[in-house]
């Protein structure tokens, strides 16, 4: 296939692709740059690109004034906890669907996906009510459970597609070798599926990290993660661009890095195998 492309054409494509890439990325770049400016430089006209005095002051202020680390910790607990819990529930289910498929397996899989498509706002009040009853409002455990349930269909689905690629004969061999079901999953399936399980976890941490309906509506001061932390900048702090930028950079940096690792799995995880 590899046809020789003229250098000229390649150069033009390169220029176009980089320009578009830069343009799309620019808001993020601009946010990061602004976070190192003083407030005055941040709103300077004409805008300053690189020629400004770099300062870390905004970061210090953000941490001091709004206790960034507490929100970060909440985000970590909520995103990590919900994903791990979901994975633990999903691995056995995905095992069953991939290796002991029955007549109903397909229906169950599709039904699980369909629960992902329920609009959250439709069940906001019942969840709210249940949370009040159980004393879960503004608690991390409550959000861990809700986000786990939100993402469980995606986790099951992704694991299912990865497990499907493992030949069933290997698991049968383990069974012949005297492994119990627990040993079969623990010593044979899980180690073989490590790459798939890792990508599943990664993508779902990202989804949970950025979830901004339940996290905004079910938390207040105590359990609020970074989504809520940023929302609190909507006014009037939002007018302090440098600080807003610093806060934003802090909120997106961890996940941006994870995201870049998981970009290959994104398609698989979000299209449920409908696009290969």
């Amino acid at each position: 296939m590899a046809r020789r492309v003229s250098t000229r054409r390649k150069a033009i494509t390169t220029l176009a692709a980089w320009s578009v890439g830069f343009l799309i990325f620019f808001p993020i770049l601009w946010t990061v740059l602004t976070s190192f400016k003083t407030e005055a430089q941040a709103i300077a006209d004409p805008p300053l690109f690189l020629g400004f005095d770099w300062t870390l002051e905004n970061y210090a202020v953000v941490q001091e004034r709004s206790d960034y680390l507490r929100f970060l910790w909440n985000s970590v607990i909520i995103a990590g906890g919900s994903t791990l819990l979901g994975t633990m529930v999903a691995i056995p289910a995905a095992w069953a669907m991939a290796f002991v498929p029955g007549k109903k397996t397909k229906d169950i899989l599709l039904w699980m996906l369909s629960t992902k498509m329920l609009p959250a706002v439709g069940v906001l009040y019942p969840i709210y009510l249940i949370f009040i009853q159980l004393g879960l409002l503004d608690s991390r455990i409550g959000l861990v459970v809700v986000l786990m349930l939100c993402n469980l269909p995606i986790i099951v689905w992704m694991l299912y597609t990865y497990f499907k690629e493992i030949p069933g004969e290997i698991l049968e061999a383990a069974r012949m070798d005297g492994a119990t079901l627990r040993e079969e999953i623990l010593y044979v399936l899980t180690p073989m599926a490590v790459p798939g399980i890792a990508s599943t976890i990664l993508l779902n941490i990202i989804l949970a990290w950025n979830e901004a309906f339940w996290t905004l509506n079910l938390t207040a001061a105590k359990a609020a993660p970074l989504t809520a932390f940023i929302a609190s900048y909507s006014s009037p702090e939002g007018l302090f661009y440098a600080k807003l930028s610093a806060a934003s950079t802090l909120a997106i940096a961890p996940i941006l890095i994870l995201g870049w690792f998981s970009q290959k799995q994104l398609v698989r995880g979000l299209t449920f195998g409908a696009v290969k």
Binding site: P167, E169, I170, E172, A173, M176, D177, M192
Partner: peptide, 17 residues
Amino acid sequence: PARRGLAMVFQSYALYP
């Protein structure tokens, strides 16, 4: 299967990779 005391060699070998 495990209690039947039989051992099986599969077509794909089914080794644990």
